[in-house]
Amino acid sequence: MTTNPTLHIKQVQISLHSEPMLAIDRSIAPGEVLTVMGPSGSGKSTLLAYLAGFLSPTFKAQGQVFLGKMQLDTLPAEQRGLGLLFQDPLLFPHLSVAGNLRFALPRHARHKQSQIREALEQVGMADFETRDPATLSGGQQARVALMRLLLSTPRAVLLDEPFAKLDTALRQDMRTLVFSQLRDAGLPALLVTHDQADAEAAGGPIIELG
């Protein structure tokens, strides 16, 4: 397994209507989870949108983002290699479970069928390939979404309150699953949340916004 590069967020400043909103200057090592906390409106999601490449043109951003030696902020979203996990699993409703996973696999990936099968087995959902995502439970959907993210072989991951909508019992399981998978994959990750428990489970450094 190749070691993943570090995610550098270099003197990034985001402003709205020339009002400064947030500033951050951090690096995230492979396998490390940086947690960004703050009340709503503090710009957490804006930071995520900026990093992922979806920042609305109404915001102005300065600074640079590097993944290892590669500058990200000048690349279009799909070339940044940053995986996203939202509150909602956002499984494509028109594709089957396997279809969702297949969509994530790089076009020239080998053995797609077996990769999909192994991914599902890993999260205990071996027979779910042909299922309609709408028929899955919340926890199952979250697991498929995680595996979809990993199959797309990202080089860093952005998590936008990924556990907020799960019920309490499930939440702990998912935290464990997500963070262990990220650690095993050796991916730098940035977690945005307002839940202290998320931050503790992530076990990495924490910064507060706002």
Binding site: G53, A77, E78, L90, S152
Partner: peptide, 23 residues
């Protein structure tokens, strides 16, 4: 249409056109 559908597709490495046609 929830913009996150397309954001997810892009973050999974899909080009704008692939995301358009397939999502």
């Amino acid at each position: 249409l929830d913009p996150r559908w397309l954001q997810v597709a892009h973050s999974l490495g899909a080009s704008p056109w692939r995301a358009f046609w397939q999502i």
